[in-house]
Amino acid sequence: MLLEIDHLNVRYEKAVLINDLSMGVDTGELVSLVGPNGAGKSTSLRAITGLVAWEREIKRRSTAGEIHIEGKVTFDGQRIDHVPAHEIVRMGLVLCPERRRPFREMTVLENLMAGAYLQKDKKKNQDTLSKVYDLFPVLKERSKQISGTLSGGEQQMLAIGRAFMSDPKLLCIDEPSTGLAPKTRAEVFEKILQINRLGITILLVEQEVSTVFKMTKRNYVLSSGKIIAQGTGEELMEDEIIRKTYLGL
């Protein structure tokens, strides 16, 4: 397994956000994590990429409530549950965050270079950049544009492109389709498939279950911070309870 999560628990004061979560992603896979709103999908991604621990460090210095995080996370054969977020990126576990969050005041190219912050090899950087431009021609056209002025779909492409610049082995993408028009959604999903075909493992968090199940071979269903089912899209859709209660279809 490239990524292995073993009995992960996250609590914000008394609220249990992640409850004994265990799951894994193999090299080359495209795996989805689906589930209703507030199931803890984003929190799971934030926990494995070190952001929950980072937030805990910050809150510890202020009066806000205590955050607890327990469990074992292994990536590429190494324990990462005590590695700070900015070091985890270096190992090749990269998160493309929810709501895209481009650096709005910077140009598209500057955003992409920010993604490549840790890559010191200039030639390799140029190669990665041209790969990103091949994937998203629109980013090349707009490379000098201030990214705050891009459309929602373009900002999502930029966010994915920026994460791609960090040279991921495993790319976690959090809700890329939110707030996009159906046509743009389809385009974004198509790009994610293309990235996967380039050999990059993908863990995709989504609400748009019907499309996602056509792309993936394996899925996890999360509810109230617990994995309640896993399998192929078809298997999950066959189970009436899961389909109606958790996937809302």
Binding site: L51, W54, P84, A85, A114, G115, Y117
Partner: peptide
């Protein structure tokens, strides 16, 4: 937070 995700300490 996003800067953190780019590996910036």
């Amino acid at each position: 937070e996003v800067a953190n995700l780019m590996g910036m300490n």
